[in-house]
Amino acid sequence: MSFAADPQISVPATLLAVRDLSDFLRDRCLAAGIDEGAAMELDLALVEAANNIVQHGLEGAGDKIGLSLELTDEIATLVLTDGGPPASADLFTADAAAPDPLAESGRGMMIIQKCVDSVDYDSEGGVNRLTLTKRLLSA
């Protein structure tokens, strides 16, 4: 997707910096008049995805996470990029089962999949690209 070739925002791969990605998303959603419920779900999906990238790939590696966002009247598209080790092919796309209610972790993928309509992942040329797409009811 051409709009994501260069990230619109790039932050250090730390859990604290994930907040900057979240702020960027919320500001853009507000400016575009995106429904609050949809913005909330996009934010949650973004944070869970970025946390996953930091915790399972990049934390401590001194790398960065990029985010590009495209909002139209009907579709929100988020593209997260990073230069960490590639994830397994089905990590983000296989159906995530709900964990045991008393599990303390393991809900991130399920939350992402419930908050957006499609999740696509590829890794090429040393760049991992996670694309989250959500249909919007109204803009």
Partner: peptide
């Protein structure tokens, strides 16, 4: 104002 699955996990651990 915002909670993610990791924050939620702390509440579950407290309950346990």
């Amino acid at each position: 104002q915002f909670m993610d699955s990791t924050g939620l996990g702390v509440l579950v651990s407290l309950l346990k």
